[in-house]
């Protein structure tokens, strides 16, 4: 479109070509603030590639020599491979369970009218007020009696249960915006309710489901309190748990501890960089409802 380009060129130059000094000053301050916020993380990554000597002497400097070996040693010595596998199994199963149960419940709560619907929504919302730590002791005793302590289930089931309120809330809000003619048409076509859920509502809700899955991933992958109390078996330890113990066991090998931590945060940072907007919106929604 050559014409419009010319038109744009012909427009008078903006009166102020440079931002006012005040704006530049605040922007610089904001940039410094952002860097200060990110600094602990930057420091973690640069320290992960240092020798212990280098780490003590010049804590702020970039590594004198980049010791890639720290990473491989941390992976081998701290059993990070096993921990990553455990975290993946637990997180993955709990996400699937959360999405399936959450979507089904959200479907019923948002699109059916029945006695006790408001009460039920209230009960689910109430759960968000219960401080998680106050359930550690009773859950420990209950799961001990049920014989599921020190199994993957000891994490999968509590994770799912505590995430359900937020999952239901996010998905129900999304589902109630889907036009109800969809069900009417499906019922006329002879679909059952399960059919409507599986073939129509679930696929249509995928955007909300992905938000739920991402938030659940961050919560489960990073969880410490449940893993600390419910898992004692070394071969079942998740990443945060093995990191916490690792830092004791290798107390003086700081480079190694830093390297192990650096490995562990990479997946969450990648997920954050890809899904920033979704994560921020979802976490804010979670905070407001909780």
């Amino acid at each position: 479109m050559p014409e419009s380009t010319t038109a744009a060129r012909l427009q008078p130059a903006p009166r102020r070509r440079w931002p006012r000094p005040g704006v530049t000053l605040t922007n610089t301050a904001m940039l410094l603030y952002a860097l200060a916020t990110l600094y602990p993380l930057i420091w973690l990554f640069q320290s992960a590639f240092k020798t212990n000597q280098n780490f003590f002497e010049k804590p702020f400097a970039l590594p004198d020599t980049w010791v890639i070996e720290n990473i491989t040693r941390a992976w081998a010595l701290s059993d990070m491979g096993r921990a990553t596998l455990n975290s993946t199994i637990v997180t993955g199963s709990a996400i699937v369970l959360t999405v399936l149960l959450g979507a089904l419940t959200a479907f019923v709560l948002s699109r059916f009218r029945f006695k006790g619907r408001t009460l039920l929504s209230g009960v689910f919302l109430l759960g968000m007020l219960i401080p998680i730590h106050s359930t550690l002791v009773p859950l420990f005793i209950m799961m001990n009696q049920a014989g599921i302590l020190n199994t993957y289930w000891a994490l999968i089931l509590p994770y799912t249960s505590f995430e359900l309120p937020l999952a239901i809330f996010i998905m129900a809000a999304y589902m109630s915006a889907i036009p109800k003619e969809i069900e009417e048409a499906a019922i006329i076509d002879g679909s059952g309710y399960w059919g409507i859920f599986v073939r129509m509502i679930f696929p249509l809700t995928l955007p909300a489901i992905s938000t739920v899955a991402i938030l659940a991933f961050l919560r489960y992958w990073n969880d410490f309190a449940f893993a600390l109390v419910f898992i004692n078996e070394p071969s079942l330890k998740t990443i945060p748990l093995s990191l916490a113990i690792f830092s004791d066991g290798f107390g003086t090998d700081y480079a190694l501890t830093m390297a192990a931590m650096a490995i562990s945060v990479v997946p969450t940072i990648v997920i954050f960089l890809i899904f920033q907007e979704q994560i921020m919106k979802g976490m804010v929604a979670g905070a407001v409802k909780g």
Partner: peptide, 29 residues
């Protein structure tokens, strides 16, 4: 960008946060 940077610590494991700051506060180094 600045808003994302400020939000970033939210996605870190609280264990990692605790350990990093433990080092930042370390009496010797």
């Amino acid at each position: 960008f600045v808003r994302s940077a400020v939000f970033m610590p939210m996605v870190l494991s609280t264990v990692v946060v605790g350990l990093i700051w433990g080092y930042i506060y370390h009496p010797q180094f």
